[in-house]
Amino acid sequence: MAWDLSVDLIKATVQLEQPLGDGSRTVGTGFLVSDPTPDGKPRIILVTAAHVFEKMPSMSARIGYRIQGSEGVWRYDPESLKIRDGDHPLWTKHPTRDVAAMVVEAPPEFAKAAIPLNYLAQDDTFNKYNLGPGDEMMALGFPRGLSANPAGFPILRSGRVASYPLAPAANFPTFLMDFSVFPGNSGGPVFMAEGARRRPGASESQEVQFVAGLLTQQVELSGERLEIGIVTHAKFIRETLALLDKVPGATVTQARAPKPEPAMPGATPAVAVSAMAMGASH
């Protein structure tokens, strides 16, 4: 039976927020992953962009759980989430990429919504399915702290892959997406959910559904938003989760920049990349 990654990820995606005391709040997006401990015990991990937590100065944030009542009606039911112990962050950050993960105690009904670890793309996924510029992907988030409805579900957006090449992640740790990005989107999952795609050399089509990465930045030039999002590969989410267990021998990718090409006469200067500030005022 066909499964719909879009619905699974909508259920697993949560709003992260912290009031700032001046009537505004800082907002980001996260999603839950089911990743058992090395000894097999169930464990739920919250994944987001590291700068989402770093922009939150207080000890606790709010995580936007949703509860379905006996009559099937959903309601927003956020809970407090401790993110610091004094000056010590309770999340684990990837050493070179804008990715963070922390273990959370989710309500039992919400823990069931966490996506399995194998939904996350691996280093060869893009080449395996011959993915590239122009392919459509989707993203979930809470732009400027807005949700799809009072129940607190995330807003689904879509866009086209806007850069080449996409792999290997060691050389190209991020890729571009052609879609509007707003404060509050940071940390949201970017994924592909295509019903039928033919792999190179294959005679039959198959479903292609995986989490490609998470949204971490937007592109700006001279202060102007270019409607382009920057996605960090899921490979670095996997590496961050491995760091939670301090797996012996686990390797962390040190991203290698491609050798720069000589500048052409009249070439446009490099585009300035701006991390999305999470201060959505309400």
Score class of each variant (00 low, 15 high):
H94M: 09
H233L: 06
V181C: 09
E224S: 11
P107C: 08
P173Q: 00
I115H: 06
G69C: 03
A250S: 12
M278C: 13
D178S: 12
T232D: 04
A167N: 10
S222H: 14
A196M: 12
D123S: 12
L117V: 08
A12R: 04
R225S: 12
L9E: 03
S58C: 04
R238I: 05
A193M: 08
K235P: 02
Y65S: 00
T13W: 06
M138N: 07
K235I: 11
G145P: 08
P200W: 00
A49K: 14
I115M: 07
S70W: 07
I44W: 00
W91L: 04
P183I: 06
L131M: 11
G40R: 09
Q217W: 15
K259V: 13
M138E: 07
N149K: 02
P36D: 01
G188D: 00
F142D: 02
S70P: 08
K41G: 02
D35R: 15
Q254R: 14
L243E: 07
Q218V: 14
A49N: 06
V190D: 01
V273N: 06
R199Q: 09
Q218T: 13
W91S: 03
R97A: 08
E220S: 14
D87Q: 12
Y119K: 07
A50L: 10
D123A: 10
E136P: 03
Q209I: 08
T253S: 13
P154I: 10
I10V: 14
R66N: 04
M177N: 08
R199N: 01
A250V: 13
P189L: 02
P95Q: 06
P143E: 06
T48Y: 13
E17Y: 15
M59A: 12
P36K: 02
G145A: 10
I83M: 07
K82N: 04
Q209A: 15
Y164A: 10
N130L: 08
P19K: 11
E194K: 15
P38T: 09
T92L: 07
K235L: 12
Q254S: 07
V231R: 04
P38F: 11
S281A: 11
V190I: 15
Y119H: 08
Y65F: 15
M102L: 15
M264N: 05
Q15F: 09
A196H: 13
N149Y: 05
S163P: 10
I83L: 07
E194P: 00
T26L: 04
L244G: 03
